[in-house]
Design a protein around this nucleic acid. Structure first.
Length: 414
RNA sequence: GUGCGCGUAGCUCAGCCUGGUUAGAGCACUGGGUUGUGGCCCCAGAGGCCGCCGGUUCAAGUCCGGUCGCGCACCCCA
């Protein structure tokens, strides 16, 4: 029996890594442009960090966490998302005493024990950013704009849609929730099985149900956006105005339901219709209560996370070519003496900064040329006995199929 | 956790319905056609517990049952 990887976990192979690097580099550079710094935090935390952070009724905490007992009996969990751990680090390192605002970004693998499907893995990568200590709506807008610009920078503006809503704050959110529960209770017998259950757990999700009768019932349900308190209405209005003022397009979707319990006020998702059932490629929002919930001072915060696999998948569809790794020069040789020369020359060229490919397998020149072709090298240097005795090598331009002889030691810069 | 689909060469798949010689193709790989020149073409070669276990049968890649694995969808979510 061969060894194999765990279900839902996958390898990212060399042929794909160029695209990953491209996407990750653009994200990091962009985030730093906005003043964010990277923070690296553990993949493993005390279970409590997530249980308290995400809310015990959320599906993630209820049934999707990789939780196990450590040798001393404490309960540990592999992070299912990034925010709770960043908040823990923010509190533990008293970052609120250092600067009035903290702008942090992170990247790494997250773990959720779900049934895998297209664009969904049990071990998957996210890049996320969190802004602590800012309660102004313009901060929400700036963060969203940063996310929007990221999609622009990797050429996916046309493939994603920004959906925006507000969930209300500590006051109007619970009030709306009970209003909604009352409403759906009145139609309970007509709701689907799932929705009857949701009524008890999270009535907001009923609004997102795909069953025909549930959709019908939802049509006349009270809307969160009509029931925001005065300050939340004003906050949401200013978020929209700010986005308008810099031309970031969005669609209001009052049915956005985030999976984590900690969100307040602004929530948003960048969605696509090109990835099957997994339509969210990035999502986030404001979470003003979380820092306090985890034992820190009352601190407003807003953040988001992007699913890298999903973005890579989408990027592959939109920009299919051009991310293979290449070498600049391939060195082919004939004979033992020439092999020594090839070995030294490869070393020299690499010292000079060229990406050089060569294999010393003693294969035929034809075979070496094939490998040179596959390696994507623009030039192939051919060292034969003949040339060696004259102190020259052949430089073949693989695109033009032309050859020149150049001196072995004074390499002209190709 | 639920439903549906699929497991045959490194990869993509045909063959299964209607059981019957040595299980096929394309791509990739190796060698040759060209004593030292890539892509296109031609020739040859190598590469298979037909996922696994059991059942039916004279005979199973093919039919049946189970099991494991994978995929998609639901739930939920990045």
């Amino acid at each position: 029996m061969k060894v194999r990887s765990i279900r839902g976990f996958h390898d990212i192979l060399p042929e794909d890594i160029g695209r990953w690097h491209h996407i990750e580099e653009l994200a990091k550079n962009l985030f730093e442009l906005y003043g964010y710094s990277e923070i690296r935090i553990p993949a493993l935390e005390f279970t409590e960090v997530f249980a308290r952070g995400l809310g015990t009724s959320s599906d993630i905490v209820e049934k999707e966490m990789y939780t196990f007992t450590d040798r001393d009996g404490s309960s540990l969990t592999l992070r299912p998302e990034g925010t709770a751990g960043v908040v823990r680090a923010y509190i533990e390192n008293s970052m609120y005493t250092k600067t009035p605002q903290s702008k942090l970004y992170y990247t790494g693998m997250m773990f959720r024990h779900e049934r895998p499907q297209k664009g969904r893995y049990r071990g998957f990568y996210q890049i996320g950013a969190e802004l602590f200590g800012a309660d102004a709506p313009e901060s929400d807008a700036e963060l969203i704009a940063m996310n929007h610009n990221f999609f622009g920078s990797i050429g996916l503006s046309g493939s994603v849609t920004l959906e925006l809503s507000s969930l209300g704050d500590g006051e109007c959110k619970p009030a709306y929730k009970s209003m909604l529960t009352d409403y759906f209770n009145g139609h309970k017998d007509r709701l689907c099985e799932d929705c009857q259950r949701r009524l008890g757990t999270n009535p907001l999700r009923i609004l997102d149900c795909k069953q025909k009768t549930c959709i019908e019932i939802s049509k006349d349900a009270p809307k969160m956006l009509d029931n925001l308190c005065e300050s939340c209405t004003e906050h949401f209005g200013r978020v929209k105005d700010s986005l308008d003022s810099i031309g970031v397009p969005y669609e209001i979707n009052p049915k956005i339901v985030r999976g984590l319990d900690y969100y307040t006020r602004t929530v948003f998702e960048f969605t696509t219709d090109q990835l099957g059932a997994q339509n969210a490629v990035a999502a986030g929002g404001r979470y003003d209560g979380l820092v306090k919930e985890l034992g820190g001072p009352e601190t407003p915060a807003v953040g988001f996370a992007m699913g890298i696999e999903r973005i890579v998948l989408l990027h592959q569809q939109v920009v299919p070519e051009g991310f293979g790794r290449r070498v600049d020069i391939y060195i082919a040789y004939l004979g033992d003496e020439a092999r020594n020369a090839a070995f030294s020359l490869a070393h020299e060229l690499r010292s000079a900064g060229a990406r050089v490919g060569a294999d010393y397998g003693g294969k035929s020149l034809k075979s070496q040329m094939k490998r040179a072709d596959k390696s994507g090298a623009r030039y192939t240097i051919i060292i034969g006995e003949d040339e060696l005795s004259r102190g020259v090598v052949k430089l073949r331009d693989m695109e033009k199929s032309s050859e020149d002889e150049i001196a072995l030691d004074l390499k002209s810069q190709p």
